[in-house]
Design a protein around this nucleic acid. Structure first.
Lengths: 110, 110
DNA sequence: CGTGTAAGGAATTCTGACACG
DNA sequence: CGTGTAAGGAATTCTGACACG
């Protein structure tokens, strides 16, 4: 129980201060699916520190003239690549274990 | 730049949900110096995850019939003890280093 | 497309005070 | 001492829309 980074607890005004973005911008990026805050009972948005970091990255990319759609695509690609990498690592791990098994059986003192 | 635990960003309503305490209780514990939230420009309180954890501990102690004054004293004592421990560790460290120096000088191959 | 802004309303928070046990 | 509550007010946030480039 310590993923503070992911806990959605920060109100939009504070996120605005933390990121330097206007609340208008932050709401718009949500509309474009770039961030997904939760809502309180009273319908007020709550963000996580992870969201704040994501927003800072978005801000940088926007400054570089990137469009929200491009940012979204880029992020999806990155996620996909990360998953492929993870898969590779898992496979290598299994391969390595099989090797160990093999050599163990070859050894004289069993 | 990663002390999320210490960043004061959570509004009192959310702290209330997180801790199970009423806002009245949370404000009262501030009055008794048990928590020290920051304020936004608009004078609204902002708490850190560290504050939330502290409040949960306070809640437990209150349930055990402890008074705010006692909780405050207990905490101060703990802080003092921790400082003493830290000092001891530093001293031991220095002592150890001196020992190393000594033995090094004793060695034949210098 | 991305962002500002005025509009009307709802939800949140603030303080100081009175009440109770 | 610790907490609830009603009171009045201020600050925050929300949505949908129009404007601009």
């Amino acid at each position: 129980m310590v993923p503070y980074m992911k806990r959605k607890v920060i109100p939009i005004g504070t996120v605005s201060e933390l990121t330097g973005l206007t609340v208008r911008q932050i709401r718009y990026y949500e509309e474009r699916k770039l961030v997904t805050p939760e809502r309180t009972t009273g319908n007020t948005r709550k963000y996580s520190f992870e969201d704040v970091e994501a927003l800072v990255e978005i801000a940088n990319k926007m400054e570089d003239g990137m469009q929200t759609t491009e940012i979204l695509k880029m992020r999806k690609k990155e996620t996909r690549e990360r998953e492929v990498d993870q898969k590779k690592i898992r496979e290598e791990l299994i391969k390595g274990q099989l090797n160990v098994q093999f050599h163990r059986n070859q050894l004289p003192f069993k």
